[in-house]
């Protein structure tokens, strides 16, 4: 059963996994957003090949499961191409950021496309270059549309980090599994605490999402 003494035994063990979970999360968030912007802009490029290639990437990574992608990066790639990412850390981060980057690139693309055509025209009439139009007029408006959706993906990425335990990374879930396999009767307490850990980690992300939402509403009501 769930007892205080069991909780105090399990708690410190799970704590050891926090560092991995958090570092994988932070690296995945940074790389994921980076990927989202790179792929989002490539899909809007004038270069057909770039556009098609990025489109293929997005469809493949959205159309297959994250866990299979993770196993590909970690187990299959090194054998097939002798190409080793060097660590389970980068395999995990790359899988999560390529996967979520694919989803979020659609947000980037969609937001940029949904800025009204009249905005580009007004910027052109002020003789801005295409780069200035993007930087000064289109992008700032598009970002405000992206932020709330980006926020939702923050929490999803946190949840996805638990998959790295499957390639042997010692995150929260990994320690939870170890505890459970050494004493099955503790499973309810272990997984209750695991849930609590993830929820507590999600709290700042939820707060951040709210901030992003309210920022995005500021000063941008449609003209």
């Amino acid at each position: 059963m769930i007892t205080i003494s069991a909780i105090s035994d399990i708690f410190p063990v799970l704590m050891q996994g926090i560092k991995i979970t958090v570092t994988v999360l932070i690296a995945s968030i940074i790389c994921g957003y980076l990927m989202a912007f790179i792929a989002g802009f490539c899909r809007l490029s004038n270069n057909v090949i770039l556009r098609k290639f990025t489109g293929l990437y997005v469809e493949v990574f959205r159309g297959t499961s994250l866990i299979v992608q993770l196993f590909w990066l970690y187990y299959a790639l090194p054998i097939l191409f002798g190409f080793d990412l060097g660590s389970d850390f980068w395999a995990g981060v790359l899988a999560i950021s390529l996967n979520y980057g694919a989803y979020m690139s659609e947000i980037v693309r969609g937001s940029i496309l949904s800025v009204a055509k009249g905005q580009t025209e007004a910027a052109t009439a002020l003789n801005m270059s295409s780069f200035q139009r993007m930087r000064l007029v289109i992008f700032p408006q598009a970002v405000r549309m992206m932020l709330p959706e980006f926020g939702n993906y923050l929490i999803q990425m946190l949840k996805a980090t638990s998959l790295v335990s499957l390639i042997g990374m010692t995150d929260i879930l990994y320690y939870g599994d170890i505890l459970r396999s050494s004493n099955l009767s503790q499973a309810p307490t272990v997984y209750l605490l695991v849930l609590v850990f993830y929820f507590i980690l999600a709290l700042p992300l939820i707060w951040l999402t709210r901030r992003m939402e309210s920022y995005s509403k500021k000063g941008v009501a449609s003209q």
């Binding site: 009249g118 025209e121 007004a122 009439a125 003209q223």
Partner: peptide, 11 residues
Amino acid sequence: MVFQHFNLFPH
């Protein structure tokens, strides 16, 4: 140019 629908920059 001045447009029918203003096209001010809302941000």
